[in-house]
C-alpha cells in the first residue's frame, strides 16, 4: 500500500502527489493548499534566517520615527513602544506588543536558522522536531506587517500637528519584515518534515 496522507482542514484521504519544483498540490474537496514544492528550500531558509537575525539588531534599537513639535523633539524605537506601555501600567498590552513585534519574530527566525543549519549539514539533533513544531505554532503570532501598518497610521495622525521624520530603524524594520515574509514562503514544511524523519532514521540505523 502506498503511504497516504489526509487534508488538514477537511480530513479527506489522499494519495500524496509527487511534486517537482514550482508545482503545488491542492485538496480536491476543500481547496486547501496541501504542498508547494520550493526550490532550494533549506538553503534559502538558512540564508534568509541569517539575514533576519542581523537585521533584527538595527530594527530593534535604532529609532523608527521621530517628531518635532514646538521646539521639542522625541524619537521612538521598537523597544520603546512596549516599554512605555509597561510604564503606564498596561503591562498586559505591553507584554502582547513585545511578543508580537519583537520576541516571536526573533524566536521564529532563530528556530528557522537552527533547523535549516542542521538539515543543510545533515546533522541530526534530538530537538529538531520540537523546533519545527514550535515554529509552526508561533508563526501566526509574529505580526510585523500589522505593526508596519500601525506605524503608517501613527505617522499620518501625527503629521497633522507635528513634523514627522523617519529613522534608520524603520528601513531596517521594513527589510526585516520582507526577509521574514520571504522566509515563511520559502519554508517547504513537507520537505522539512521528510528530512527530519530521514535524519532520525539514519541516526537509529
Amino acid at each position: 500500500m502506498p503511504p497516504l496522507t489526509a487534508c488538514p482542514e477537511c480530513d479527506l484521504l489522499l494519495k500524496p502527489a509527487d511534486l517537482i519544483t514550482g508545482e503545488k498540490a491542492v485538496c480536491p474537496r476543500c481547496g486547501y493548499l496541501l504542498h508547494r514544492a520550493r526550490e532550494q528550500s533549506i538553503e534559502r531558509v538558512l540564508a534568509l534566517s541569517i539575514a533576519g537575525l542581523i537585521l533584527a539588531i538595527p530594527a530593534n534599537f535604532l529609532p523608527l520615527i521621530g517628531i518635532r513639535f514646538m521646539g521639542n523633539s522625541n524619537e521612538s524605537t521598537l523597544w520603546a513602544g512596549a516599554v512605555s506601555l509597561f510604564g503606564q501600567g498596561l503591562w498586559l498590552v505591553a507584554v502582547l506588543v513585545f511578543l508580537a513585534s519583537i520576541f516571536i519574530p526573533l524566536l521564529n527566525t532563530l528556530l528557522a536558522f537552527l533547523i535549516s543549519v542542521h538539515l543543510h549539514f545533515n546533522r541530526p539533533h534530538p530537538h529538531l522536531a520540537h523546533w519545527l513544531r514550535w515554529l509552526q505554532h508561533l508563526e501566526e503570532w509574529a505580526m510585523l506587517e500589522v505593526y508596519l501598518l500601525g506605524i503608517i497610521v501613527a505617522c499620518v495622525k501625527l503629521s497633522d500637528t507635528a513634523d514627522v521624520h523617519l529613522g534608520f530603524g524603520l528601513y531596517a524594520f521594513v527589510a526585516m519584515l520582507l526577509v521574514n515574509a520571504m522566509l515563511t514562503t520559502s519554508l517547504d514544511e513537507v520537505l522539512f518534515w521528510q528530512r527530519i524523519a530521514e535524519l532520525d532514521r539514519k541516526k537509529h540505523a
Binding site: 520603546a80 512605555s84 498590552v93 500601525g150 506605524i151 497610521v153 501613527a154 501625527l158
Partner: peptide, 19 residues
C-alpha cells in the same frame, strides 16, 4: 491578526508623543 493595528498604533504614539 490585523485587528492588532489599533494596539500597535497606540504603542507607537505613547512612545513617540512624550514631549
Amino acid at each position: 491578526r490585523w485587528s492588532m493595528l489599533d494596539i500597535f498604533m497606540i504603542s507607537i504614539l505613547v512612545a513617540v508623543v512624550d514631549l
